[in-house]
Simulated scan of single mutants.
Amino acid sequence: MARIDLDLAHAYRPDPKEDADYALLPLKMSFEDGGAYALLGPSGCGKTTMLNIVSGLLRPSHGTVRFDGRDVTALTPQQRNIAQVFQFPVIYDTMTVAENLAFPLRNRGVPADRIKARVGRIAEMLELNGQLNQRAAGLSADAKQKISLGRGLVREDVSAVLFDEPLTVIDPHLKWQLRRKLKQIHQELKLTLVYVTHDQVEALTFADRIVVMTRGRAVQVGTAGELFERPSHRFVGHFIGSPGMNFLPAALEEGGGLSVAGQPVAGAVDAVTGAALSRAEPFALGIRPEYVELEDIGEGGASPARPGTITGTVAQVQDIGTYWLVTAQAGPHTLKARLSAHARPPAPGASIALRVLNPHTCFYGADEQLIAAATVAAAQEGLA
């Protein structure tokens, strides 16, 4: 196991006479020894490029890769002592499950009794112990990929185990089980694991810390709670969550008040947040659908009495099963609210008040970076 430090950038066309085609913009990042990390983002964001640079399959055009402080930028995957699991099974069909699992250990001259013990433990963890004597050729794609996972995990001396979307070929019914199993294996074996995925559920289930990437940049590194509660970039708010964060144009008014989606909002943000916003106009308010509160205000559509709210009209109500998803229009702006499955949602066309200013509210500048979170002041107004 190793601590991995990256200080690099990568361009597939690095010729300075041409426009560099950067797959990874300059970044500094560390993966702690024994940590479980996910690289999360859409296709083409640079996450597989980063993984291949860590493994040694790709040398960065700029900068260095260090394992436990040692510069390994020019070393091969074998010299770095890396195990890597790919999207599709990499196994020997002519071998049995046990022989496949043992192969990486036999290549390194591990004693036979130690091989048997280690193969048995990994097979039990992946629920392959009933198939150890079967040839891999006759197994399903799911079972073959579990063997690939086992081959990556079977060595005890690896610097890190890298996963490149390893559950692509797994039946959806089994994905949840395997994600949980990988989490359990990490807790037991304490290996350094780095997992590439575009699926936020996989990332949030598996990893202790998630690196959210877009357009060659790592825009936030944090726990699942940090990414959900305080996205440091609008992309994170949009990408994490189902549905993603609502964003509405906002502006400061005299006295510390706000207008949101063109409507004045009763209540004020605290002095610190207000000062940050005053230096950053224009800006946008962001709030997750889970934290938008609704109140039916009747056909008259009178101004909402509660602080922190704007008015809108219900455009659509969807029964998702575990929750209601309400889509509302506030002038030309659309926002969504998630209600409990036991709630009574408003009817389409109803006039409603939407509470958008509360302690979960975030504000973002024109550069899409988080300016401040709304530690909302004035407890007497019921906002905190």
Score class of each variant (00 low, 15 high):
residue 358 N to E: 01
residue 162 L to F: 11
residue 118 R to K: 11
residue 244 G to E: 12
residue 301 G to N: 05
residue 4 I to D: 12
residue 28 K to S: 14
residue 226 E to G: 02
residue 61 S to Q: 01
residue 291 Y to Q: 02
residue 231 P to N: 04
residue 165 E to A: 08
residue 343 A to S: 14
residue 41 G to D: 13
residue 337 A to D: 08
residue 125 M to H: 08
residue 203 A to Q: 03
residue 45 C to K: 00
residue 301 G to W: 13
residue 258 L to S: 12
residue 14 P to V: 12
residue 166 P to E: 06
residue 154 V to C: 03
residue 233 H to M: 13
residue 26 P to T: 07
residue 186 H to A: 15
residue 113 D to W: 05
residue 234 R to D: 00
residue 235 F to N: 12
residue 137 A to G: 05
residue 357 L to N: 10
residue 301 G to S: 10
residue 311 T to S: 15
residue 141 A to Y: 11
residue 19 D to C: 10
residue 207 A to L: 01
residue 110 V to A: 00
residue 67 F to N: 00
residue 205 T to F: 12
residue 90 V to P: 04
residue 54 V to G: 08
residue 356 V to K: 14
residue 23 A to Y: 06
residue 258 L to F: 07
residue 331 G to T: 07
residue 142 D to H: 03
residue 31 F to P: 06
residue 329 Q to G: 08
residue 377 A to D: 09
residue 141 A to W: 07
residue 96 T to I: 02
residue 158 V to L: 14
residue 346 P to E: 08
residue 200 Q to F: 01
residue 305 A to K: 10
residue 12 Y to C: 05
residue 10 H to N: 11
residue 231 P to G: 09
residue 166 P to Y: 07
residue 84 Q to G: 10
residue 185 I to P: 04
residue 128 L to A: 05
residue 98 A to E: 12
residue 381 E to N: 12
residue 263 Q to W: 10
residue 261 A to F: 06
residue 252 L to P: 15
residue 42 P to D: 11
residue 324 W to M: 01
residue 42 P to I: 02
residue 47 K to R: 08
residue 128 L to W: 04
residue 132 L to P: 00
residue 154 V to T: 07
residue 10 H to K: 09
residue 83 A to C: 12
residue 372 A to W: 00
residue 31 F to T: 00
residue 136 A to G: 00
residue 40 L to R: 04
residue 186 H to W: 10
residue 69 G to M: 09
residue 27 L to Q: 13
residue 231 P to C: 05
residue 178 L to Y: 11
residue 21 D to K: 08
residue 238 H to G: 09
residue 75 L to G: 04
residue 38 A to L: 03
residue 251 A to Q: 13
residue 319 D to N: 13
residue 120 G to H: 03
residue 351 S to Q: 15
residue 273 T to L: 05
residue 59 R to Q: 14
residue 311 T to C: 15
residue 278 S to G: 13
residue 245 M to L: 13
residue 29 M to V: 15
residue 229 E to F: 06
residue 189 L to S: 06
residue 181 K to Q: 15
residue 83 A to W: 02
residue 197 T to Y: 10
residue 283 F to H: 04
residue 169 V to K: 02
residue 69 G to N: 02
residue 280 A to V: 05
